[in-house]
Design a protein around this nucleic acid. Sequence first.
DNA 1: GTTAGTGTATTAGTAGAGTAATACACTAAA
DNA 2: TTTAGTGTATTACTCTACTAATACACTAAC
Lengths: 131, 131
Amino acid sequence: MIRVDESSPVPIYQQIVEEVKRAVLTGVFGPDQRLPSIRELALELKVNPNTVAKAYQEMEAQRVIYFRRGQGAYISPRSEEERVQEAQREISRLFRQVLDIAHSLRLSRTRLNDLFRQAAQEHPDMKEEKP
Amino acid sequence: MIRVDESSPVPIYQQIVEEVKRAVLTGVFGPDQRLPSIRELALELKVNPNTVAKAYQEMEAQRVIYFRRGQGAYISPRSEEERVQEAQREISRLFRQVLDIAHSLRLSRTRLNDLFRQAAQEHPDMKEEKP
DNA sequence: GTTAGTGTATTAGTAGAGTAATACACTAAA
DNA sequence: TTTAGTGTATTACTCTACTAATACACTAAC
């Protein structure tokens, strides 16, 4: 079930992309599972088919889904390894941002480690901390 | 000296804001130092005064600069403490993003620490690492 | 008070992103 | 071959962000 907030400033097609990707991450959509067709989803969301098509094309470009000609769109069976590698690239990118900021203000590496520990402590799903 | 890339997709007024903030961080602009007036900078950049005004208003809102009526714009003498606190808030935000991703893929805290260490090793200005 | 410098308000033009209306082209299955 | 389902191309409308042209209002210094 894909939902969309019409009043949000976030474009509809992007909302669709995010919803599907989240569903894949959380396991709601499994590998090779069929998605609603462009027309079906457009009807359901009361939106133009081209808007859904744009979302699907975006996801195909990101290899989140693939098309079978004449049939529909399906969840890409990406390996766990691929997903983990991508996540690690994103995480490294965020860490680099952190290090840039830290450097410009001359924060110590120790202080950074403290901040990271604290964020992990406060994170709802990462409370487990080795003593 | 403030520069702007006319051909960039990044709005001119944002480029100005970023340039000034960077100059403040790196110490090129010191506390209570006078900035070029809106008109001066507009002439220099060959841009409309309103564009520069928008950048200056943005920076005033962020308390990066302040105005003296009839005189011009000046760098806010923010305390080192304020700047550090802001940076730490930003860093915490980035860390939370990291933790969200890590959680969705069930990456271990240990793996995260490794990635952080690695990013720090590869960072041009953060090579110092305690053994 | 005049002047030369500040920032600001009003209005308009431009470009791009997003969405829709509509018609088209292809495929699978009967 | 027909049919009912796929995705796609074309075109146009709307909305917003950005920038500019121009005129205004205020302040400091003389």
